[in-house]
C-alpha cells in the first residue's frame, strides 16, 4: 500500500487540483463581478474601504466660527515620541485663549501613533483618513498652517483617492 502511495503522486495531484480550482474560478469569473475571488484591488479605479479609526495624516480642525481650535497647551508637542510637532504661542485680537502662530508637523518622521490626538483636550487635531502621503520633495513633508499644498487644514492634492468621499474634510464638523 505504502509503495503504491509512493508510486502514485496523489499528494501532488491534490495540490494541483486546489490550484487548478482557483485558476478555473478566477478564469471563468469576470474580474469585476460582484463576488471577488481575487484579493487584490485595482486601486485607483476601485475605491477601497478605510476603517473609521484609520490613522492617517495630522490635520487641524476649526470650530463653528471658523476659528482654529488649538489653544497651544503644547500637550501634543510634549507627548510626541518623535518630536514632529512644533508650536509657537501667540496672541490674537479678540481671542482669550492663546493662538498658534506656528504649528509645524514634519510628516516624514511621523509614526502615526495618534498620541497627539489622544492628548489633546480640545479635540483640535485629528489624524484624517489620508494614506497617500507621497510627495516629490522632502520639504513637502513639513506641513504647517500656511502654504499652498501643505496646509494643515486641507488634504494634500496627492491624496485625492484616500479620503472617504462621504465626508468633506474642509467642513468644520469633519471628524
Amino acid at each position: 500500500m505504502s509503495i503504491l502511495k509512493k508510486l502514485l503522486p496523489l499528494d501532488i495531484a491534490s495540490g494541483m487540483k486546489l490550484t487548478g480550482k482557483y485558476f478555473g474560478r478566477n478564469f471563468l469569473q469576470a474580474n469585476r463581478s460582484k463576488k471577488h475571488i481575487h484579493i487584490t484591488v485595482e486601486y485607483p479605479e476601485t475605491p477601497i474601504s478605510i476603517a473609521p479609526r484609520f490613522r492617517g495624516r495630522l490635520q487641524m480642525l476649526r470650530d463653528e466660527q471658523g476659528e482654529i481650535k488649538c489653544v497651544c497647551c503644547l500637550a501634543c508637542e510634549k507627548i510626541c515620541p518623535t518630536q514632529v510637532i512644533t508650536i509657537s504661542k501667540g496672541k490674537k485680537e479678540g481671542r482669550k485663549t492663546p493662538f498658534p502662530t506656528r504649528y509645524d508637523f514634519e510628516m516624514e518622521r511621523c509614526i502615526f501613533c495618534e498620541f497627539c490626538v489622544e492628548s489633546c483636550g480640545f479635540d483640535s487635531i485629528i489624524l484624517n483618513h489620508q494614506f497617500e502621503l507621497a510627495a516629490y520633495n522632502r520639504e513637502d513633508f513639513s506641513i504647517g498652517m500656511e502654504g499652498q499644498f501643505q496646509d494643515m487644514f486641507r488634504v494634500s492634492p496627492v491624496g485625492q483617492h484616500s479620503i472617504s468621499s462621504t465626508k468633506n474634510p474642509d467642513s468644520p464638523d469633519y471628524t
Binding site: R102, D104, E106, R109, F141, I143, G144, M145, E146
Partner: peptide
C-alpha cells in the same frame, strides 16, 4: 529636529 521646515 526643530528646524524651520515649514518656513515660517
Amino acid at each position: 529636529f526643530r528646524e524651520d521646515r515649514s518656513g515660517v
